[in-house]
């Protein structure tokens, strides 16, 4: 491995700082903590970059390092207590908003004949951008628990003990997250056709 190659990998790692910070922020919802986790992930990546050879998977590798740093951050914050804000939670659990998706018989209350058929021709970069925008639109607690589940792969018990959310409310929040993401992506798939 040449020095020039090493330098270019380090340069390339640095270009991921903004996206790593945004993903850490989705989970931690705290700019200082997200900045620390991002910084630690980048440092760890640069220190061990000589072990990394597959540049096509650089994003994958960096996100896996960030995942450990975010888990560390959550464990530290859990010791200080990181319960959800009950007022904010009750807003996110409010049923009125979701009732409009279905009519009184439980059928889709959609004005369209059919949903947009998701196309796979959208480039990966484009879909990462759209999905990230949709994740960012999720309410705070909804995105926190959704990322804990889908990214950090914590168990339901771990998420409940971390956030103070009951198992029943966790099920609702995960459902809402999936429903909102589907609706959000439906709009973007519609536009791409």
């Amino acid at each position: 491995m040449t020095d020039a190659y090493k330098t270019s990998v380090i340069d390339e790692i640095a270009t991921y700082r903004p996206v790593l910070f945004r993903i850490a922020m989705l989970q931690l919802r705290d700019a200082a903590a997200a900045e620390d986790a991002t910084q630690e992930a980048l440092l760890a990546a640069i220190q061990t970059h000589d072990k990394f050879e597959g540049r096509a998977a650089l994003r994958t590798w960096l996100i896996s390092i960030l995942r450990f740093k975010v888990l560390d951050s959550l464990r530290q914050r859990q010791r200080q207590g990181m319960p959800v804000d009950p007022g904010q939670l009750s807003v996110e659990l409010d049923t009125a908003k979701f009732a409009t998706l279905f009519d009184e018989t439980g059928c889709w209350a959609t004005p369209k004949d059919a949903w947009t058929n998701p196309e796979t021709h959208v480039s990966r970069i484009e879909f990462f951008r759209v999905l990230e925008a949709c994740l960012t639109k999720l309410p705070t607690n909804t995105s926190r628990v959704f990322l804990m589940r889908e990214w950090l792969e914590l168990t339901s018990d771990e998420i409940c003990s971390e956030t103070g959310v009951t198992a029943g409310n966790l099920r609702v929040l995960l459902y809402r997250a999936r429903m909102q993401l589907r609706s959000c992506l439906d709009v973007s798939w519609d536009r791409s056709q």
């Binding site: 590798w61 949903w115 990230e132 993401l181 798939w189």
Partner: peptide, 28 residues
Amino acid sequence: GASKQFDVLFQQIRLFFSKDIQPGGDAS
């Protein structure tokens, strides 16, 4: 239609969080 969208959504989420790719592997 919704079910097809959920399938794509779940697949995209896995890709976004890099779950379907082996860390350290190179697609090329």
